[in-house]
Simulated scan of single mutants.
Amino acid sequence: MTSNNKKIIYILSALLLIGIIFTASVLSTSATSTTTDINLTPGQNNEPTSYRIEDWKKIAMHYYWHGGDIKKAEEEIFKGVTLKGNYDVVAQAFKEAIHLDPFDTDLKISLASTQIIQKKIPDALHTYKQILNLDPNHFDANLLYGVYSKINDDEKTYQKSIAKLRTLDATKTNVYLKKFQTTEAIMKEKINTIAPSGLPQQKHAIVILGYALAEDGSMQPTLIERLKVGLSLAKKYPNSKIVVSGGVPKQGKTEASSMNDWLISQGIDKDRIVQENKSTDTVENALFSISKINELGIQDATIVTSASHIRRALTVFREASDFYDKLNQTNSKRTFTNVVYLDYPTVEEAQKVIKDEKLVIYRDLFRVSGIWQYPKLQR
């Protein structure tokens, strides 16, 4: 091989190596990017309508999950529309998408769901009514319109909605009416602030629900208080498995992994603890924890959370358990009990169910029953 040929081979090899390094760098950068890097500028009028609608959906979901600069959103995205919080941005983004496609009922459901989160019940009812004006036989819209009307003290509209639902699908309507009866019974259950006696000694789990970690990855006081309650229960029932549920990571730690470490530091055997580290909210706490409970062959469970959260938690865990029974053609006859961290001045006050709480309980019941609050976007 000549000297010139060798030089050419060396040069080509060097260029190939540089190319490999450059490609790896680009892939690494792409892999570490997050949804916070997305372009939050809505499409221009010279783009296809479908692109512009997708842009508004991305803006809505970004602010739902991550929040953002509200003033910047007012000035740059919505050109002066007054906004007071992240959910205002979500609602306004869906309104913009609906303006581009007024035929899309999924967009209207997403707007109504945001209005429910904002506790703007009359606005949500108006949006559901628009859906029903276009599609009178929309089962989910009739269901949501009726139940939220009842929560808003309009029993007459609720009864009309149930009558309509019976004509659309009597079997499905009766299934939901049974869910509502179960939910109403749960809202009357006694809240326990100390570990009760008489819980099962075998095939029993203590499920401790997570709470958002601080930005530095540390556990906030609410989560620590829940853990203290769970620890007292674990000591009283040493044969019970402990499921710690919560998946939103901060600084490389999930709620579940942080709870796991805390319990071990308090003397709990690591083999007793099962981490559920994929859930992002109460609905997913229930769905993913019940899945693990079934895998472990556990019959009954005691839910540990805050008093202000327990009725919602018991509702969605009951519904999730019923779903898995149906999926697997089983009849678990599972019993759920509770012990709470009291975040009210008194137990008597904690037992009261106000309208805002009932709204959230039913919202999450619908979500865990399979009705997505943001269709095709977010459960």
Score class of each variant (00 low, 15 high):
residue 3 S to L: 13
residue 4 N to R: 11
residue 4 N to S: 03
residue 4 N to Q: 07
residue 5 N to I: 15
residue 6 K to A: 13
residue 7 K to V: 08
residue 8 I to H: 08
residue 15 L to D: 00
residue 18 I to Y: 00
residue 20 I to G: 11
residue 22 F to T: 14
residue 24 A to C: 13
residue 33 S to L: 09
residue 35 T to Y: 15
residue 36 T to A: 09
residue 43 G to N: 03
residue 45 N to H: 08
residue 47 E to V: 10
residue 49 T to E: 14
residue 50 S to W: 11
residue 52 R to T: 02
residue 63 Y to T: 09
residue 64 Y to E: 13
residue 66 H to Y: 10
residue 68 G to Q: 09
residue 71 K to C: 04
residue 78 F to C: 05
residue 79 K to C: 00
residue 86 N to S: 11
residue 87 Y to H: 14
residue 89 V to R: 04
residue 92 Q to H: 01
residue 94 F to Y: 15
residue 97 A to L: 06
residue 99 H to Q: 14
residue 101 D to L: 06
residue 104 D to A: 05
residue 109 I to E: 10
residue 112 A to E: 04
residue 115 Q to E: 13
residue 117 I to T: 15
residue 117 I to P: 08
residue 122 P to I: 02
residue 123 D to G: 02
residue 124 A to G: 03
residue 129 K to A: 12
residue 129 K to Q: 12
residue 131 I to K: 03
residue 132 L to W: 06
residue 137 N to L: 04
residue 139 F to L: 12
residue 140 D to S: 15
residue 141 A to Q: 04
residue 148 Y to Q: 05
residue 150 K to Q: 11
residue 157 T to N: 09
residue 158 Y to T: 00
residue 158 Y to I: 04
residue 162 I to F: 00
residue 163 A to D: 12
residue 163 A to R: 03
residue 166 R to L: 09
residue 166 R to S: 08
residue 169 D to Q: 08
residue 175 V to N: 14
residue 175 V to M: 11
residue 176 Y to T: 02
residue 178 K to W: 07
residue 181 Q to W: 01
residue 192 N to S: 10
residue 194 I to Y: 13
residue 196 P to D: 04
residue 197 S to K: 13
residue 202 Q to Y: 11
residue 204 H to Q: 13
residue 206 I to N: 01
residue 209 L to G: 06
residue 209 L to H: 06
residue 211 Y to D: 02
residue 212 A to E: 01
residue 213 L to S: 02
residue 215 E to W: 03
residue 215 E to S: 11
residue 225 E to S: 14
residue 229 V to W: 05
residue 232 S to C: 03
residue 235 K to N: 10
residue 236 K to G: 00
residue 242 I to L: 07
residue 247 G to D: 07
residue 259 M to Q: 09
residue 259 M to T: 04
residue 262 W to D: 03
residue 265 S to A: 10
residue 282 T to R: 07
residue 283 V to F: 03
residue 284 E to H: 14
residue 286 A to H: 10
residue 289 S to H: 01
residue 289 S to A: 03
residue 293 I to N: 05
residue 297 G to A: 10
residue 300 D to V: 05
residue 301 A to D: 04
residue 301 A to G: 09
residue 304 V to E: 06
residue 307 A to T: 04
residue 309 H to A: 08
residue 310 I to E: 00
residue 311 R to T: 02
residue 312 R to K: 03
residue 328 N to K: 11
residue 333 K to G: 11
residue 334 R to C: 08
residue 334 R to H: 08
residue 337 T to L: 12
residue 343 D to P: 06
residue 352 K to H: 10
residue 353 V to T: 05
residue 354 I to M: 02
residue 355 K to Q: 14
residue 357 E to M: 00
residue 357 E to A: 01
residue 358 K to E: 12
residue 361 I to N: 00
residue 366 F to W: 13
residue 366 F to Y: 14
residue 371 I to S: 09
residue 378 Q to K: 15
